[in-house]
Amino acid sequence: MDSQRRLFKPFAIPLLLIGLILLSIFDLSLGSVNIPFNEVVKILLGGISENEAWQNIILKIRLPRTLTAIMAGAALSIGGLQMQTLFRNPLAGPSVLGITAGSSLGVAAVMLATGSAATLLSIQQLGIGGSWLIILASTLGAGLVLFLILLISFKIRDNVVMLIVGIMVANITIAIVSIWQYFSEPEQIQEYILWTFGSLGGVTNEQLGILAVVVGFGVFASFFLSKTLNALLLGESYAQSMGLNIKWARIIIITITSLLAGAITGFCGPIGFVGIAVPHLTRSFLNTSDHRVLIPSCVLVGAILMLFCDIIAQVPGSSTVLPVNAITAIIGSPIVIWIIVRRRNLKKSF
């Protein structure tokens, strides 16, 4: 068993990469218009398709959605991995610790801002400036909540207590948004509620560039933090005794996580589940806690899972699109339960 797992390791990343590419192409071929698989590949490779409409659909509509799914999966997974290591808690993740709720507060603040006509539509019309506004609001909201949790974590050493505090802070944040909604105009609320369903399709080409910059920066920065995160595996006291500056490590890790989770939440809505589940799946499959392996692998596993959920959300063979937020939970949770029951080592591998 053990030697089998070790054999699997060197092939893991190439295998995941191949899986990611295949799923991406499959995802691109899905939608209300049926485009053959080989045509999708041809268009992607820069060839000219006989059908100009197909080319437009693929490159202008479906490619941004697929790329958004890949980035969302990668960013949320990395955020979750960092939170789980920092708090040394297997239940930590962007959505549980209230980071997503903080993002919602930030977005609500922009969308529901009283009096102004700051609906999602008008923000989209603002172009890049508006995108930055949402990312900024969402990140600030996420950062605010995380900072609060960080402050409390200096007082509390117990991880379980810390987690409960995180959930409570998330509740307070959600309550504030509720009150805000209560006093807002129906049209503004509608925009906001649509946003909370989660959507990978609402990201325009321009916004995609911004998202790519933020997510790319976040993922690279986390990879640079591999050594720090590895040291934190032994707990903060040991990390400190090995010369790690805990205060800065905490601040940097939390900033990167809020940036990643904040940006994705801002554009795609609050997508739950992925952040918690992917790190566990990855650790369990690769049988390692080394972040130098885990970070690239989490990016791939996260992207694959998100693409898979997006494919389901498209409901292949129909023109219906379901809210992706619901799909990640409905599809993802049974997968995780199945894996826990089958492998029984999710806790052991943490």
Binding site: R88, L233, L234, R283, T288, D290, K348, F350
Partner: peptide, 16 residues
């Protein structure tokens, strides 16, 4: 305090 980390080999832990 006992270190709670399951998925590290002895070598990997010492290499930290």
């Amino acid at each position: 305090e006992r270190v709670h980390v399951g998925n590290l080999t002895v070598f990997a832990l010492i290499s930290l």
